[in-house]
């Protein structure tokens, strides 16, 4: 079953502060991802991998094309949806594990991880218990759980971020280099977590620069250079 279907996405940035120059990024981006499948975007830096991920999540607007996500037995186009629909899709259908943690002042690591469950109606204690499980699995020392992650190291923040992104059960999950600043042991944990999501039928779209990780998680690689705009700026 197709969980995510991307059709003819196109994106050009217009830089008004640089004399209005146009920077075409991608065009005709088209691929499908089935439930339980992990598709990895391939291609060199600057080819538009992150831009595609951000268009699929709605952080970037699109100049054309569709992002069809299965929701409530229908396919909903996130690219043309109004803000409320995008927020509903993000709550129920599509999750995002970003590369960097956007820290909120004063909120403890445990609550940062538990929050996505709490806002979906899980009892706070139960959410914290499951957040603790995720953090243990990712080897984040328990003495850090009650602290706000702002002062954590890059690798520690990334593990908090991964725990937060993986704690919910979104049918579609976007992964933006979730293993970038992790050591080998924690990379292996994340690879295991991705495998588990696959078994649960989650469709994943990711960017992984680490070749070993990519080889282990990718069912298919979509080469982004194939979507380079044909017309020069």
């Amino acid at each position: 079953m197709t969980a995510l279907s991307v059709r003819n996405l196109a994106k050009t940035f217009t830089m008004h502060l640089r004399g209005g120059i146009s920077l075409p990024v991608v065009e005709n981006v088209t691929f499908d991802i089935n439930a339980g499948e992990c598709v990895v975007l391939g291609g060199p830096s600057g080819a538009g991998k992150s831009s595609i991920l951000k268009m699929v999540y709605g952080n970037y607007g699109v100049d054309g094309g569709e992002v069809l996500i299965a929701h409530d037995g229908r396919q909903v186009d996130l690219a043309s949806a109004d803000p409320r629909t995008v927020l509903t899709l993000r709550r129920d259908a599509i999750g995002y594990v970003s590369q960097f943690l956007r820290t909120v002042p004063r909120v403890s690591a445990l609550d940062v991880v538990a929050e996505p469950l709490v806002v979906r109606g899980t009892d706070k204690e139960e959410a914290q218990r499951r957040a603790g499980e995720m953090l243990s699995r990712l080897n984040l020392p328990e003495r850090l759980w009650s602290l706000p992650p702002a002062t954590f190291s890059g690798g520690e923040q990334q593990r908090v971020n991964i725990a937060r992104g993986f704690i919910t059960h979104h049918p579609v999950l976007l992964l933006d280099e979730p293993t970038a600043s992790l050591d080998a042991a924690n990379r292996a944990v994340v690879v295991g977590m991705i495998a588990q999501k696959k078994r649960e039928g989650v469709a994943m779209l990711g960017i992984f620069h680490d070749e070993d990780v990519r080889a282990e998680v990718a069912d298919r690689i979509v080469d982004v250079t194939g979507f380079a705009p044909k017309v020069a700026a």
Partner: peptide
């Protein structure tokens, strides 16, 4: 106008970009 992270991550208008 739009979703907060869309406006902040992908501002369209010259003034918003500024």
């Amino acid at each position: 106008a739009g979703l907060t992270d869309r406006v902040l991550d992908d501002p369209r208008e010259p003034y918003t970009q500024l």
